[in-house]
Amino acid sequence: MPEITYREAIKQALSEELERDEQVVVMGEEVAQYNGAYKVTEGLFDKFGGKRIIDTPISEAGFIGMGIGASMLGMRPVMELMFWSFSYVAFDQIVNNAAMVRYMSGGLINVPIVIRGPANGGTNVGATHSHTPENFIAYTPGLKVVCPSNAYDAKGLLKSAIRDNDPVYVMENTLLYGQKWEVPEEEYLIPLGKADVKREGSDLTIVSHGRSVITSLEAAENLAKDGIDVEVVDLRSIRPLDIDTVLESVRKTNRVLLVDENKPFCATSSQISHMIQLEAFDYLDAPIQRVTSIDAPAIYSDPLEKEQLPNVARVEKAVRSILDQVSA
C-alpha cells in the first residue's frame, strides 16, 4: 500500500469528490491560484478550473455565510479556513446559520456544507492562531465535527463529510500535513461516528482524538518497554460520537486516561469522562484522569508551548500515576 502524506490524502478526497459531484466546489483563502496556504489544494485549480476552485477574499463571515446560503439550494461547498481560529470571526454564520436553520424551519432546510482546515496548537504562532474549537462545535446540536489523526482517516472522513446532508466541520492539524501513512489506492469511505482502536492493550485505555492520538501512541510504545500495555482509542469523530467503542475498551482495561488538546474546562474529554462514569461506573478501578493543554492561552515561546500541549512525557507520567494508584 502506498504511503502518502496527510495533506495528499485530503487533496485526493477533494479531487475525487469534485469529480464525482458537480455541486461540490472548494472555496477559501489562497486555495486556487496560490495552490493552498498549506498546499492541501495544490493542483486542483489547474485540474478543475476557476469555477470549482475559488479564491476568496479574507472575509470569513462573508464567504462562509455565502457557502451556507448556496448549500441551502443544493450545492456542496467545501470551505477552507486557513486556521479554524479564524472561524471566530464567522461564528454567527457557522453556528446560528449553519446549525439552526434546519431546526428553525421545522426541518424544511438542510445545510450540506463542509468547513475544513487546521485546528491545532504547537506551531509557535501564539494564542490567536492556536485554537482547537471542536468542543465549541460539538456543543452545538445540528453540527457534526471530526478530527482525523492520520492520512487514512482524513481521506475517508472527508469524503463522508462531503456526502453528508448536515453541516460537517473537519478539523485537521498542520503538524500532521507532512507526515505519511499507508492509504489504499482504491476508493473507501469512513463513516462519521465510528471510533477506531489504534492500539490494543489490556492495562489502561487512552481515549483521544486528532494529533493527541499520535502522542498517545508514542507514549504507549515507550510504556510497553516497561511492560505496561496501553490501549489507544481514537474517537475520530466527536459528534456523532462512538461512545460504545470507548465503553467496550474501558470494560476491558478498567482504567482510563483521556488525552485531549482542548483546555480542560468544558473540553471534549469532559463529556467523554461524564459518559464513561455514567455508563461504565462499576468497571472503573481508578478515577478517570486527563492530560489536556495547560489552562492558559497558547503560549508563543516554543519550548514552553511543547510543555503546554499534551506531550509524550506528560501522557506517560499520567498513565504511570493511574497504575500506581491502582496497585497501591
Partner: peptide
C-alpha cells in the same frame, strides 16, 4: 429537525450518537 440524518434514519450513513 436537528440533523437531516436523524430525521431520515433509513438513509443515515454515520454511526454513533448524535
Amino acid at each position: 429537525d436537528v440533523y437531516w440524518e436523524a430525521d431520515n434514519p433509513d438513509e443515515r450513513k454515520s454511526e454513533g450518537r448524535l
